[in-house]
Amino acid sequence: MTIAHDFAYLRPATVPDALAMLADHRGAMVLAGGTDVVPWLRDDAITPETVVDIKDIAGFDAIDVADGVLRIGPLVTFSDLIASPVAAEHVPALVEASHTVASVGVRNRATVVGNICSAVPSCDAGPPLLVYEAAVEVAGPGGERSIPVLEWFLGPRTQALAEGELVTGITIPLPGAHGGCYAKLSRYRGEDLAQVGVAVLALPGNDYRVAFGAVGPVPFRAPAIEERLAGGGPGDADPAALDALVDEAISPIDDVRASKEYRTHMSRVMLRRSLAAAAARLDGGGPPYGEQVI
């Protein structure tokens, strides 16, 4: 059914204009792709008095690399990322995750920044951005600041953005040579929200980064697992010990999508397979990016 809630619609052309509008209209909702915002409005899950559409802000749709940093603008959609040679070269695991987001008609609209602003525990961009050690660039009444993704997610649907602030982009320091993998547990091959998401980066010298999604209130890195893995090959760690570390790291829930038991079981399976795929990709082998390991 139709959106019953009344709100004002504003469309700034510049960041300062946008910040002024956000300052003038407390509680305003920022609109980019709208694939979350519009259904939330329909469900009365949000009832803002003002919606600020940022799609006219110049430069917000860019993906570029400068000074060893990849920058993703707030209007960059998952389709843009999938089509970007720069992204494929530098952040292939984020591109792999992008392929798993909904379907073409949604990816053409849904933005990467919007995905982490919505901050649902299952957000597909979360785990890859964590292993790529991205930062969220923010402008606000107090000026600009950069929030490491590690500190971004605060709880289900809650992130570190303060009142009046606007995300101006995501920055990722170029990771150099690496093998990456994003594995997503879904109920079938068609589009689904992740029941478990695992992102792994294998860096030269048997250095690994591991992040999980959908098995805790927020996507998170797993340092204990990374430490255990460090220095060895992907299959060197004792499987039982690794499973135990997974169990300690995650705090999955039972819901209509999956049970706690299955999420736990699959977190272990997916970590093993993602590690193997990431390590093989680092060596130039492994399954091509985009081919799911489960």
Binding site: R189, G190, D192, V256
Partner: peptide
């Protein structure tokens, strides 16, 4: 979203 009916990939 949560009552999954088959897609073309299934």
């Amino acid at each position: 979203t949560d009552y999954k009916i088959p897609t073309s990939k299934d």
